[in-house]
Design a protein around this nucleic acid. Structure first.
Lengths: 144, 144
DNA sequence: TATAAATAGGATAAATTTATCCGAAATAAA
DNA sequence: TTTATTTCGGATAAATTTATCCTATTTATA
């Protein structure tokens, strides 16, 4: 469904959010530990999230990654997915046709429309806050 | 969403079905032309579909690929996807956790459930016949 | 039985994704 | 200003997916 990079990105953003509530910045090392991901690769993904304004980085001693408290509830899953995988997952043709629309549909165009739209709606209407709060309360988990 | 191999496999199966109605066997070459896919790679994917009993192959002169007419309406998209990509797309955790269920959910477990189930339902309730008939009637297309 | 036509399948290459490593640049504090 | 700490970013490697090529095997027909 999502790329590994995107899975790591989503989990990283959620973890950073949980820490940002307490005003604590976190390092790629700590993030990787917490979400069971390869550290250097995770650092690369964090760079992409910074570039797309999903998380904020502070360089130098006492630096790290954080998210402005006020932003946590406005950042949507779709922004994270888009920053890493692009939006092809819910906008491109399910069978890979370059041109696929109502006038020139692929064989599964209509069948797929519902699934794609539901995925898009879900991603655009899920914010980091609800995900982070469930992690904090122990209702969900970032690793096994 | 699906791998390239899976996209090719779905399109190939649909094309074979359209020809099988007329009792015509088709070659990897003709299939690749019709669905705009690399021929040798497509041939490999056809082998997988044969192994999983989605299509039938006849070796030797006058051979080719076909689907028993009676089977066209009973073959589901889910069988094709499963044969090539496996069923992880609608059964695995959206964030890649090895263990993810009601008791130990990832942060998006509930959010994803709806999308995943709808995708699963769609794949398990769409048969090759309806897709092939729409191609034959010109209501949908296998290439640009 | 010989021949031509067709799929099967192994070996290999190219492209992409995933992952690692290391030095450069930035920054807070001593 | 120096030092220690930390992200940034380029180079590279490993793994996987996508794609190609060539030979073996099968089979209908002449």
């Amino acid at each position: 469904m999502f790329s590994k990079a995107c899975e790591y990105g989503i989990k990283a953003a959620i973890f950073i959010a949980t820490k940002s509530y307490e005003g604590i910045r976190v390092s790629p090392k700590e993030i990787a530990m917490e979400i069971s991901s390869p550290q250097a690769f995770t650092a690369k993904i964090l760079q992409a999230l910074v570039k797309h304004d999903v998380v904020k980085s502070v360089k130098g001693a006492y630096g790290g990654f954080e998210i402005n408290k006020g932003d946590i509830s406005t950042i949507k899953l779709s922004q994270i997915v888009k920053a890493i995988d692009g939006d092809t997952i819910y906008s491109a043709c399910g069978l890979g046709l370059d041109k696929c629309d109502e006038n020139h549909p692929c064989p599964v165009h209509d069948k797929f429309k519902g699934v794609r739209d539901e995925l898009k709606f879900m991603l655009e209407n899920t914010n980091l806050e609800e995900l982070a709060l469930n992690i904090k309360s122990g209702a969900s988990f970032l690793k096994v």
